[in-house]
Amino acid sequence: MGMIVLIFAFTMLLFFPLLGGYVAYKKNNSQTLVIKQDRSKNPRYFADAFIKLFEEKWINYDGSGKLKFSHEESIIEADKTALYKSKCDSVVYAEKIDFNPEPTGIQFYKEIYVKKNAYLRGVIQLRAIACLSNVLIGENTEIIRWADAQNELIVLDNCDLGISTTSGNELIIGINCLFRRLYAPVIYIGQKPEQKWSAYNTIDKKILYLVPKTETKRNLKYIDKFLINESGIAEFSVVSKRNVTVVENIIVQGSIRSHKGIRICDGVIVCGNLFAEGNIVLGKNVCVLGSIFTQGDIIVESRVMIGQKNKIVSIVARGRIEFSENSVVYGNVSCEGGGKISKWLE
């Protein structure tokens, strides 16, 4: 009898895990991972999605001061509002007027949607703003999530730009600003609206038409005068295991890929892309016509142009991006580790 019990216990212990697995198989349905088939890259996604949602809900708005999004939100119609509470916990909608909230020192905890222009001087903090025209964000403003303008978005000094700051036309950002993601056909970085600078106006336009070479030289450490032709052009791309330095005033008609870092010295023009595992440093007056991507940090000195007019490029870092004043990017800036725009100190 005792042995029968033991044999039974042995059989149970032997097969129990299989039984458990089988019960789980029968009891639970399979879970196919869901792929968002219609997902598409849209750098202005936050604003576009919000505007679409808002417009859908607004059609049925009954004037009650409440609007149901994922949950019910209170709404302030800016067209009928003169003064705001210092801590505004409502979605704000400005349809027919320029949005210029008074008094100063307001914190907007919910989204703002403006169809005309928005002038946000003296606002301490805002969660998000979508605007179909121009936006001015005054000094010392903190954006929690995102800001987008269909036309021009100007950010004055000392702002925190939250997760995403985008524009359909032009973005101008002052110094001492923090950011994570920027996007616009042209982004003036560390600049003021009245003094916009871009090397595009002065660069030899022939350079813009140079097609990056795919012929590749491997494991170079320096791209210097010994590797250029009589026009000062290095006509190749580089793939290197080492740190790569491009010395002053050379034109690289190709892309550079380093398993370590890349240093582009003052006055260099790179026609292709830069890819690195380590840090990338761009010296003064550098032009990179392609995209820049690194798993490390990117440091950009003064008067640097990345990309060119009417084309979109990207500058992407796994780590941080630090810009100095007076640079311009045509397209997209993105960094996981946070970005900063500082005053240029020689």
């Binding site: 979109i312 990207s314 397209g331």
Partner: peptide, 12 residues
Amino acid sequence: QRLFYNDIIASD
């Protein structure tokens, strides 16, 4: 996690 290139937006 090593970043893939999908944060890049490029027209070319």
